[in-house]
Design a protein around this nucleic acid. Structure first.
Lengths: 211, 211
DNA sequence: ATAGAATTCAATCATATGATTAAATCAATC
DNA sequence: GATTGATTTAATCATATGATTGAATTCTAT
């Protein structure tokens, strides 16, 4: 341990790596860039994590995993209630990541970018990301199916994709977007969740009408 | 000119470059990889385009520009009609890229990936991409405003972002998604436009209710 | 205090990368 | 068929990259 106010080498690397992956993408991030900003030695990365791929996986595991877990817990508790609705499913999906990101302040903005951008990484990173979110996808698709069983399979899948794309877009771009129509980039977590839920809920009701 | 059946060096580079940028992203694409698959010399890239950045810009210009132009033409002709509706604006946005991509077959799938992925490129590519789509964004935001003038500025901006995120998600991921619920990855352009329009139209009506 | 484990360090490897140069080849024109 | 301009080629530069090594240092338990 270096000293009390400084994070451990491992955490320091994770923090900066997350920031760089979020800002530059996986391919655009170099270990050199990370270790320079983190003030650690290149070999520390290999020692603590292994390869660059392993480092990315560690960053994923550190933050994405808890988010998915929170979403699934919320979904489970909602589904065990008798009066389940589409809106409750949507809130179970949107609230955990939005509230976590918002609660972390400046650090959360980096996490936000990372969470958003990891969904559009090229292979082989995409498969890694997908493996982290596959259980989440499957469970939410099952929830859509359980709530309204008489639709074609494709409807459930596209519901999930549309729901996902809205939050990915928000996480990746909200800062840019808000700068276009107001000076501040502050936002309220509840308002954002409401906005996403309302849009998605009504969008899904369109599918109910059509087929 | 090499021979009659083979594309010119310049077009050959553009084709393969588009494919590689689509598959690996900008940072993940190497000029070596492109020129190897295109069977041309490295210096040809510099000769015809300049730098790697310039090559990306040329690929953007070649396909993104016509799509934006088609969207804006559609929007203009719709806006000049007396009975303009939200749905007509949405169709003006969705139909040109979807129909173009679909009409090109296997080549269109590459274009689809490229069009989708370029929207989530890190800087400095993002700024280049944004400059190509800025006019499109502004004009569609203006259309939303003209149709329903009494909303807060943020509503129009988020409408555009949600509209955009749905098609970006479709372009980037439709192949993966469809493989999950059916064996074929064929799709019908009209059905997709309908799906996107219906979801988006109803989603936007939610904003009308709230504010 | 010290032995042993854990961690950090400087140095180096092999390769990949974007870019550039000057010579060679091709195509059109006279 | 020689001239001229456009295009392609092989070779090379300077640098960046992910990874690894073995020695030095720090930490921990005794």
């Amino acid at each position: 341990m270096r000293n009390d106010t400084q994070a451990s080498t491992k955490d320091q690397i994770l923090d900066i790596a997350e920031s760089h992956f979020a800002t530059f993408g996986f391919a655009g991030t170099s270990l050199r860039g990370i270790i320079k900003e983190a003030n650690v030695n290149v070999a520390s990365v290999a020692y603590h994590f292994g390869s660059k791929d392993d480092l990315f996986a560690a960053v994923m595991q550190r933050f994405a995993a808890p988010v998915v877990e929170a979403q699934l817990n919320r979904l489970s508790s909602e589904m065990s209630q008798p009066n389940i609705t589409l809106e409750k499913i949507l809130r179970a999906f949107y609230e955990p990541p939005i509230q976590l990101v918002h609660s972390l302040g400046a650090k959360g903005e980096k996490l936000s970018l990372f969470l958003g951008r990891c969904h559009s990484e090229p292979e082989p990173i995409f498969s890694l990301v997908d493996s982290h979110f596959a259980s989440c996808r499957n469970r939410f698709i099952d929830a859509f199916k359980a709530l309204e069983p008489d639709k074609t399979e494709s409807v459930y899948h596209w519901r999930f994709e549309f729901m996902l794309s809205l939050i990915v877009n928000f996480l990746t771009r909200h800062k840019n977007i808000m700068q276009r129509y107001q000076t501040s980039t502050d936002w309220n977590a509840n308002d954002v969740v409401d906005m996403l839920c309302q849009f998605c809920l009504n969008g899904m009701s369109a599918q109910q009408i059509k087929k």
